[in-house]
Design a protein around this nucleic acid. Structure first.
Lengths: 231, 231
DNA sequence: CGGCATGTTGAGTCAATTCAACAGCAGTGG
DNA sequence: CCACTGCTGTTGAATTGACTCAACATGCCG
């Protein structure tokens, strides 16, 4: 399983300042700094599996650098990506004994990980930790609820508009967003084919709503018109 | 808000034996029986709103009798039902301050409800309660993850097959299932139109995989062939 | 019995898919 | 340095699964 080399002492990551830290990051830091909870860092190469659906969930993860996709497969290979996890995000927090989705590194990725058992132990004695575990799971649930609405009821263009606004909010730096994932990943996240994603992006480009510096480097020129499409 | 009449003392519900109680029911009973947590019963008529999206989440609910749909709307009225809640199921457990979906009674429905604040208080002093809140939210998340795969990647027939197996598991009595919801609800749950749901059911009937006693009374004749369609 | 909800079925349409060709680019090695 | 190769992304053409619109059937409730 975790045969990757340790690349940096955990203490360094704990002290690294990061911009635009999502709420879950603070919660995770509180947990990770509890006595008895030991955080370690690992690196995964592009497309490497971090854990598989159905595997025992031994660890909980936080993305330090890079990006992760978590997905489910049908028997014939059709794939649904449930979420993209970016710097600061926590993933792999499945309160059962097994992971319910597969996690893969989208690009070369560094994660911080803590043992599930030590987490549960901390939750048993520290009410604050227990509450954080709950709210982190709840925030995954909120995202899933929003995403069900998108998958079940939005058109292709509305899906892509929602996606762009989500990524803009989560990873834009200086007005520019550098998408870590390919068109197929985006399609499998939105319940579309990669061609449909490409066509929608081209159309938004033609309309002047966005500009490409490269296929994955996008600047939004008109967030309002995107938000209007987003219903 | 809760202007319905109280129909039965809570104590009666607590002592009423029920068959096929889902795991969440036990967990909720543990919570509800905590000192300081007061459970009350209310009745809602068919199609009555229990709470609206965005409203402050004052209560957590458990279905005693009847059925509930929780859903999100787009501005033009397109609807995505996130879940159906049947006897024993807990719903409305949103760890934020506001409900993220609207809840409506599908049929005349009796619920048991407890104040959120008393729940959180109990969680603060009782680790068991805190853990149950977490696992109940996690089980909603599991359902949402499975449902995203369905919405994003399954065909109409696969969606309907999955739906039938889910409902068969959750509400079949003596091999027969009595669906509380109409075709439109099923469609809005599966990301389909009501006509497509109707056509799929007719086709399964023609194939002898199921038999209708009435439009909503269904007997599955061949679960294996349904499971095969379910991929 | 009549009236309205719900459900079924048919015909035509269309949004997104499939299949196919090609363009762009990054990495590799001669 | 540039040709070669493989991967990613774009675009076009044809197809199709699900949708829309419409008519009719069924059944429940007063």
């Amino acid at each position: 399983m975790h045969t990757q080399t340790i690349t940096a002492p955990a203490a360094q990551a704990l002290n690294t300042p990061r911009a635009a830290v999502p709420p879950s990051a603070d919660q995770f830091s509180i947990i990770a700094s509890c006595s008895g909870v030991i955080a370690t860092e690992f690196c995964y190469r592009k497309d490497e599996e971090i854990y598989g659906e159905g595997e025992p969930s031994e660890y909980v993860y936080q993305v330090i650098r890079g990006a992760v996709r978590t997905y489910k497969l049908l028997s014939d290979g059709r794939r649904q990506i449930g979420a993209f996890h970016l710097a600061g995000d926590v993933f792999g927090l499945d309160p059962g004994t097994a992971h319910r989705l597969t996690a893969e590194a989208i690009t070369d990725t560094t994660v911080r990980l803590v043992k599930r058992r030590s987490l549960e132990a901390a939750a048993g004695s520290n009410v604050r930790v227990a509450h954080n575990l709950w709210t982190m799971t709840a925030s995954d649930l909120r995202h899933a609820e929003d995403h069900m609405l998108l998958l079940g009821r939005k058109t292709a263009m509305e899906k892509v508009a929602t996606f762009l606004l989500e990524m803009d909010r989560r990873l834009a730096k200086a007005g520019m967003m550098a998408l870590p994932m390919c068109r197929r990943d985006i399609g499998d996240y939105l319940g579309l084919t990669l061609e449909t994603v490409s066509r929608a992006l081209s159309q938004l480009n033609d309309q002047g709503i966005l500009v490409f510096s490269s296929a994955r480097q996008i600047v939004l020129r008109n967030r309002q018109r995107l938000a209007d499409m987003d219903v």
